[in-house]
Simulated scan of single mutants.
Amino acid sequence: MPVSDLTHSAQDYLKLIWTATEWSATPITISVMAERLGVTPPTVSDGIRKLARQGLLSHAPYGSIELTDLGREHALTMVRRHRLLETFLVEVLHYGWDEVHDEAEVLEHAVSDALIERIAAHLGHPTHDPHGDPIPTADGQPHLPAAGQLTTVTPVRGVTITRISDANPDMLRYFSELGLRPNTRLTVLGQRPYADVTSVRVEDSGNEIDLGSAAAASIWVVSS
Rank of each mutant, 00 (worst) to 15 (best):
V44L: 05
R173N: 05
R192K: 08
L85R: 00
G71M: 05
G212M: 04
P41N: 04
T26P: 01
V156A: 07
A146Q: 13
R192Q: 14
D5H: 15
T184W: 02
V92E: 11
S24M: 08
A217N: 01
I209A: 07
G132V: 00
V222P: 00
I28T: 00
I65M: 00
A52S: 05
I119Q: 06
D12R: 06
W220K: 08
I17Q: 01
I17G: 06
S223I: 09
I219Q: 00
P136K: 03
E203I: 15
T187L: 14
Q11F: 06
R157L: 14
E22N: 03
V3G: 12
L84Y: 09
D139G: 13
I28C: 00
P136F: 03
H74W: 08
S58C: 12
T152Q: 15
R192M: 06
D166H: 10
L178D: 09
S64Y: 10
M78E: 05
A114I: 10
K15Y: 05
R157Q: 15
V188K: 00
V222E: 12
G71P: 02
V197S: 02
L84A: 14
R185S: 10
Q149H: 12
G63V: 06
L93V: 11
V106K: 11
T19C: 12
R185W: 03
G124K: 01
Y194R: 04
I119Y: 07
D170R: 15
A216W: 01
V153E: 05
R118G: 07
A167F: 13
M171T: 11
Q141D: 06
L93H: 12
T21D: 07
A147G: 04
A25D: 08
I119H: 02
E105P: 02
L189E: 03
V111S: 05
S213V: 04
R49D: 05
E203D: 09
D12L: 14
P155N: 01
S112W: 05
L172W: 00
G38A: 03
P61C: 12
T26E: 08
M78C: 05
H59T: 12
A138H: 12
V92M: 04
T29H: 06
V106N: 12
E66H: 15
T154D: 09
A104H: 01
R118N: 11
V90L: 01
Q191M: 12
A60G: 04
V197L: 15
D210R: 13
R49G: 14
L51V: 08
D5I: 14
A214H: 11
V153G: 08
H94S: 15
V221F: 09
A217S: 11
G179R: 04
A138K: 10
R157M: 09
D166M: 03
D46H: 11
W220M: 09
T26L: 10
A10T: 06
T137A: 07
A110N: 14
A25I: 14
D46C: 08
R53A: 06
Q11S: 07
L107T: 01
V221K: 02
Q54K: 08
G158R: 09
D129M: 01
D5W: 15
S165L: 07
A104Q: 06
V39E: 00
L6N: 07
A20C: 07
D170E: 04
M33I: 10
Y194M: 10
E91Y: 09
H74M: 05
T40L: 04
N207A: 13
E86Y: 01
H122M: 14
Q141W: 13
T184R: 05
S58L: 09
I65N: 01
R163P: 02
R157D: 14
L84N: 00
